Computed example of a mutant assay.
Amino acid sequence: MTDLAAPSTESEAAFPWGAVWGQPDAVATLRAAASDPASLTHAWLITGPPGSGRSTLAHAFAAALIAEPGDEPAMRQVLAGTHPDLTALRTEGVIISIKDARSLVERSYFSPSLGRYRVIVMEDADRMVERTSNVLLKALEEPPERTVWVLCAPSEADLLPTIRSRVRVLRLREPDVDDVARLIAQRTGVDAVTAEQSARHAQRHIGMAQRLATDASARARRDTTLRGVLRVRGVGDAVEVAAQVVQAATDDAKALTAERDEAERASLLRTIGVAEGAAVPPAVRSQLSALEDEQKRRATRSLRDGIDRVLTDFQSLFRDVALLQHGRDGDLINRELDGDLRAVAAAWSPQRTIVVLDQIALTRRNLEQNVAPALALESMLITVASGRTP
């Protein structure tokens, strides 16, 4: 097993690659591309599961492309997101808008101002609907000589075939639970047991594992939610648990966004010269309204992402049930619920478990299409209670 808690190759240790964790093969590929203009592909797609480091790798690649070799100040400027030759988009809404996509395309045709290349990084490229993807096609197919596109998504299947045909795909590897646990223990100082449990429950998602390891309330909330699902026996239980999940996700989203929202509002008011506590002049209310609209979109995405994480936990629960039904108990994610899982595995048929897993996957897709979260969860939990789709 490779010790991924530290850079695993000489190339990975070199700046700006040091922040990229556990992806030596990908680092080697991109480092070679950045150093050899003759072999550089001008459109890339970095794929990997959430938490695998797609965006970290994309920005390290951008730094290596834009800055001259050895120019660490310029590389740090790229990594900080302030270099004029870097354009990066990470949507904080549910989808990437056509307006944002067109803005990226326009920027892609500018010549580099200071660096060797202009780099366009699009995180969450899977959040483009078809008409937005079509905006990118020509820019990806025929980019200017010194422009490089770097898209990030969980998998190739999340993008249209027309996009996939115009990019070079770089697939990231999934780390082992033990590797993630060691990294989390080193970063946070938590004990080995908590680090291992957090890495396992997060299914190797580094960011989520770190949060679970350092937030006892998040660990308790996850445990309560999963035990609640296992107790669902009818429509009443389904409605109650669905409401609890939505409320918990809502509270979580507010906690994550409230402080940032207030800081953004205060900064905007200072910029336009409005003293703290003073009335907002009518002439600038439209700017404040635009900011509030953007914050609402961000809150909607944060809520849906929170519910999606809960559904990922549900999938892990019934995946464990399926393993037990097939005589495999050495790779359970939710070992702490062993007794409850074995009871469900004995009471259900394997076919019923598959029906529930399919319904959870369908619920995740429905939420991406803006279905009301409470209704989607209630429908899914009724399937858990009955073994049949509503």
Rank of each mutant, 00 (worst) to 15 (best):
M1Y: 14
M1V: 11
T2K: 11
T2L: 07
A5Y: 12
A6S: 13
P7D: 06
P7C: 05
E12Y: 11
F15R: 02
W17S: 12
V20S: 12
W21M: 08
Q23T: 02
V27G: 03
L30C: 15
L40G: 01
H42K: 02
T47H: 05
P50G: 06
G51Y: 00
H59L: 13
A63I: 02
D71S: 09
A80F: 11
G81P: 00
T82V: 13
P84C: 10
R90W: 11
T91G: 11
T91N: 12
G93D: 01
I95L: 15
L104G: 06
E106N: 11
R107I: 09
Y109Q: 14
F110K: 06
F110I: 05
S111N: 14
R118L: 05
M122Q: 04
A125C: 10
M128L: 09
R131T: 12
T132K: 07
V135N: 03
L140G: 00
E141W: 10
P144L: 09
L151A: 09
L151E: 04
D158T: 14
T162W: 03
T162S: 09
I163G: 07
R164P: 02
R166N: 08
V167N: 09
V169F: 03
L170S: 04
R173I: 12
E174N: 14
V177H: 04
D179W: 04
L183K: 05
A185Y: 05
R187M: 15
G189F: 11
D191W: 14
A192V: 07
T194W: 02
E196V: 04
S198G: 05
S198C: 05
A199N: 05
I206A: 00
G207M: 07
A209L: 07
A209G: 13
Q210E: 06
A213T: 03
A220S: 08
R221S: 15
R221I: 05
R222F: 10
D223T: 13
L226R: 03
V239Q: 10
A242T: 03
V245L: 07
V246I: 08
D251G: 07
D251W: 09
D261E: 10
E262D: 10
A266I: 01
L269E: 00
L269S: 01
R270I: 03
T271M: 12
T271Q: 15
A275L: 11
A278Q: 06
A279N: 04
A279S: 11
V280G: 00
P281F: 02
A283N: 15
V284P: 00
Q287V: 02
L288T: 06
E292H: 09
D293P: 07
K296F: 02
R298F: 01
A299M: 14
S302R: 13
I307N: 03
D308V: 09
R309C: 13
D313I: 06
S316L: 06
F318L: 10
F318Y: 13
L324I: 09
D329N: 13
D329R: 12
L341S: 01
A343W: 08
A343N: 06
V344H: 10
V344D: 12
A345C: 13
D358N: 05
A361E: 15
R365M: 15
E368S: 12
Q369K: 14
P373L: 10
A374H: 15
L377Q: 01
E378K: 03
S379N: 13
